[in-house]
Amino acid sequence: MKAFSFERAIDAAQAAKRAFEMPGSKFIAGGTNLLDLMKHEIEVPPHLIDVTHIGLDEITATDDGGLRIGALVSNTALGADERIRRDYPVLSRALFAGASSQLRNKASTGGNLLQRTRCPYFFDPKMPCNKREPGAGCAALDEGADTRQLGVIGTSDHCIATHPSDMAVALRVLDAEVETIDPEGRTRRLTLDEFYLLPDDTPEVENALSPGEIITAVVLPAPVGGTQRYFKVRDRASYAFALVSVALIEQENGEGRVALGGVAPRPWRRDDADAELANGATAVMAKLLDGARPTPDNAYKLVLAERTLAALLAKE
């Protein structure tokens, strides 16, 4: 871990301003991903801005019947919130499917969105990785690499990493938006597809945040009802990243929404795939995974995604 200076921000606007003034600085909230990466010198910020005292730790009702989740609300508090459990159960389920109690107690909503891939080559600073070091190459693309956990769609010739968040998959299926404030004090809202950028030839750029811009909240639209479920498939029964996860909202009229985790650089959803829901898992995946480019070691994810959705749709 490289040395850094440290300050405590008093509010989001000031934090954004300070971050802009201090190039390379990082916000730290829960720290559960950032410190992990800093110990490996995958992240080397010269300056940290502690945002744990800027408020933003409440969940409040919005005018249109939705909820505004402060960026500092912990994963535990979010998953356990009665309104979330009642009206957005897929989000609660996704949160509790992730990490451990210890990590969820510390991890923040904003930080969860910003967590970085678990690709083993990203995590090993001695391996070439375009995400860590643009232009260095990608060890995961070499024949013989360990790609069992890596992405099958939305990837590029420069990076096949996945986004590891469970929460984000549920937020995507709920059409949540990310609210930010920039150093000029301007706020904006982004859908998750606007927020997360695909790697293409710049895998180091993972999201649309501009320098200094900070996430202040995640906004949930009014509840959509339906049966909401999150099915996370992993090798061990707990405390593991998803091989594949499926967030599903089913309405009584057969309509619904599907998002996938563990397969792509961002939570993966397509409107045309949602439209196939009444036609079953195979039809949905034909759209949702159209254009997939798996490796021999992770092609199983295509089958697994389909079978996982089938398991959710099966009435048994």
């Binding site: 083993p120 070499d142 024949e143 690499a145 360990d146 061990r236």
Partner: peptide, 24 residues
Amino acid sequence: SIDTARGFFANHDLAGYEIAVHAD
């Protein structure tokens, strides 16, 4: 997981190398 291109165990941490947890 042996990376046969570079010759090392790629999953060299306790998140990547999965020993049984209590729920197992």
